[in-house]
C-alpha cells in the first residue's frame, strides 16, 4: 500500500496529509516532504494521520530525525487524528512524551496559534 503525501498551508502552519501505511518501503515521500519543509524554513508542522492505519518503527525514525531541528528552531510537530493502533505504536515507544497529539487538524493548528498568542503578549 503506497503512502500518499501532500501538504497545504493553514495560516502559519504547514499541514501534511498522509494516506496509507508507513513502513521502510513507503516512507521516502514523507521523509522528502519533511526535509523540503524544514529546509524551506517551515518549522510549524501538523501531520494528519487520519488515513494512516499502520506505522512501523522506521516511520517513527523519520519523525525522530527532524524533531530536533524543528524544535531547535522554535517550531513543533503535532500529530492529528491518529487512529488507535497507530497511537498505540507511538505510546509503546514513549513517543507520546515527545510529540503532541490532537483529535482534529484544527486543534493541532490551534496549538501553534496559541503559541503565537503567548509570544505576542
Amino acid at each position: 500500500m503506497a503512502l500518499t503525501v501532500t501538504s497545504r498551508t493553514l495560516g502559519s502552519v504547514q499541514v501534511i496529509d498522509l494516506s496509507g501505511e508507513i513502513d521502510a518501503q513507503s516512507l521516502p515521500p514523507l521523509e522528502a516532504k519533511l526535509q523540503e519543509l524544514t529546509e524551506g524554513g517551515f518549522y510549524r508542522i501538523v501531520l494528519d494521520f487520519g488515513e494512516v492505519p499502520f506505522i512501523a518503527s522506521a516511520g517513527l525514525g523519520v519523525l525522530m530525525s527532524v524533531i530536533g531541528t524543528i524544535q531547535d528552531n522554535g517550531g513543533d510537530l503535532v500529530i492529528a487524528r491518529s487512529q488507535s493502533d497507530v497511537y498505540r505504536t507511538f505510546d509503546l515507544l514513549d513517543f507520546t512524551t515527545l510529540f503532541k497529539f490532537s483529535d482534529t487538524v484544527d486543534a493541532a493548528v490551534a496549538v501553534f496559534e496559541d503559541a503565537v498568542g503567548v509570544q505576542d503578549h
Binding site: S57, G61, S65
Partner: peptide, 10 residues
C-alpha cells in the same frame, strides 16, 4: 533524538 534500533524492542 536517536534514530533506529527500536524494532527488536517493539
Amino acid at each position: 533524538c536517536r534514530v533506529g534500533g527500536l524494532g527488536l524492542y517493539l
